[in-house]
């Protein structure tokens, strides 16, 4: 018991010194949601963070010569945390949307994952609105995929809305939905699983303003200089090949935001 308390006191003291040290240098607090989002951000058993976005932010920090510290936040409160200066950057697969742009600034997009159609193997499907006439399209409600399906397919196809991606996956596997539209990263994982064994990709949805420009780093509107630094750094790692080297570690497809 005594040693536990001792350890606790020691670790508190260590944290305090760490915090003090950080305050003096130009340290950027990088906000990520506490729950992991593999392969983008994964928390190791040692407490260290790793993943595609962690590698990416480390290269960006090297590029702008800043000390970066990963700081865990709850996803719900991550924007208020940014605006109240608990963190300095949100780097956690946040889509750039007009609603969010009302409250925070975004860097240029650093990755973009297209939406993918998934349907049963052995069925020929043309994923244009004319090709899916009379078919049932499944989407998760409150996603840009739902908005996309509603805009282009509602007149000719039946759209079924699901509360969670899991329920939608189950219904596609059970053949209750002819085709679903979901994020390609999620689709890749699902198609590899046992439930997705009889399904296959039916191609990507075309790029559309509804999907937005992609994923960007969230910044305070007042930090104009930092936004410029981030924009340049993202541009540099994309042209220098660093981005490609990192994404090859995690993905077979190209997810760069072009």
């Amino acid at each position: 018991m005594k040693t536990t308390i001792k350890k606790l006191v020691l670790s508190c003291a260590a944290t305090a010194t760490l915090l003090a040290a950080n305050a003096s240098a130009t340290t950027l607090k990088i906000g990520v949601a506490a729950e992991p989002y593999p392969p983008f951000s994964i928390k190791q058993s040692s407490g260290q963070w790793s993943g595609f976005e962690i590698d990416l932010i480390n290269s960006i920090c090297k590029e702008i010569k800043a000390q970066c510290q990963i700081t865990e936040m709850s996803w719900d409160g991550i924007i208020p945390a940014l605006n109240s200066k608990k963190i300095d950057v949100i780097f956690n697969s946040m889509s750039i949307t007009p609603e969010r742009e009302k409250v925070i600034a975004f860097s240029v997009p650093y990755y973009y994952t297209p939406a993918e159609f998934v349907g049963p193997k052995g069925v020929k499907l043309n994923t244009t609105p004319a090709g899916l006439k009379g078919k049932i399209i499944g989407v998760q409600a409150s996603t840009t995929h739902a908005d996309f399906a509603k805009k282009y397919y509602e007149k000719t196809s039946t759209i079924k809305y699901y509360n969670t991606q899991d329920e939608l996956n189950a219904d596609v596997a059970a053949g209750r939905v002819d085709v679903m539209l979901e994020d390609t990263v999620a689709a890749i994982d699902f198609l590899k699983s046992k439930d997705g064994a009889n399904l296959e990709s039916k191609g990507f949805a075309p790029k559309d303003p509804i999907f937005g420009p992609g994923i960007g780093a969230g910044l305070r509107k007042s930090d104009v200089a930092l936004k410029k630094q981030f924009d340049d750094a993202i541009h540099n790692i994309q042209t220098s090949g660093t981005f490609n080297a990192i994404q090859k570690k995690y993905f077979k497809i190209d997810i760069s935001a072009k």
């Binding site: 409600a141 409150s142 739902a146 908005d147 509603k150 079924k160 809305y161 699901y162 509360n163 329920e167 219904d171």
Partner: peptide
Amino acid sequence: AVMDVLGAANLVRAQTF
């Protein structure tokens, strides 16, 4: 995923916040 009254309300909630 049946669009009964509650399903419809959930859809409105999801799309309009």
